Computed example of a mutant assay.
Amino acid sequence: MGAKDEMNENGEIIDDYRIDYMVKHISAMHDAVLDGVELMGYTPWGCIDLVAASTGEMSKRYGMIYVDLDNEGKGTLNRSKKKSFNWYKEVIETNGQSVL
Rank of each mutant, 00 (worst) to 15 (best):
M1E: 08
M1L: 09
G2Q: 07
A3W: 06
A3M: 11
K4C: 03
D5R: 09
M7G: 12
M7R: 10
N8Y: 02
E9A: 13
N10K: 15
G11F: 05
G11Y: 04
G11W: 02
I14V: 10
I14P: 08
D15K: 10
D16A: 06
D16G: 14
D16I: 00
D16W: 00
Y17F: 09
R18E: 00
R18F: 00
I19K: 04
D20W: 00
M22D: 03
K24L: 03
K24Q: 07
H25Q: 08
H25G: 11
I26C: 03
I26Y: 00
S27V: 01
S27G: 12
M29H: 03
H30M: 02
H30S: 10
D31H: 02
D31M: 01
V33K: 09
L34Y: 00
L34Q: 09
G36A: 06
V37S: 12
E38K: 15
L39D: 01
M40C: 14
M40A: 13
Y42P: 15
T43F: 09
P44V: 08
P44C: 13
W45D: 03
G46K: 09
C47E: 03
C47K: 06
I48L: 13
I48G: 15
I48C: 14
D49C: 11
D49W: 06
D49N: 11
L50D: 02
V51G: 13
V51C: 15
A53C: 14
A53V: 14
S54H: 14
T55W: 03
T55M: 05
E57V: 03
E57L: 13
K60I: 02
K60R: 08
K60P: 05
Y62R: 06
G63W: 04
G63A: 08
M64K: 04
Y66S: 04
V67W: 01
D68K: 09
D68Y: 02
L69A: 06
D70L: 02
D70V: 07
N71E: 01
G73D: 07
G73P: 13
G73A: 10
G73Q: 08
K74S: 14
G75H: 04
G75P: 15
T76N: 06
T76Y: 07
L77Y: 07
L77G: 10
L77K: 12
L77V: 07
N78T: 06
R79W: 00
R79F: 07
S80P: 12
S80K: 15
S80T: 14
K81I: 01
S84Q: 09
S84R: 10
S84L: 04
S84Y: 10
Y88S: 06
Y88M: 04
K89Q: 04
E90G: 13
E90P: 05
N95T: 03
N95S: 11
Q97P: 10
Q97L: 12
Q97R: 15
S98V: 11
S98C: 13
V99T: 06
L100N: 15
L100H: 13
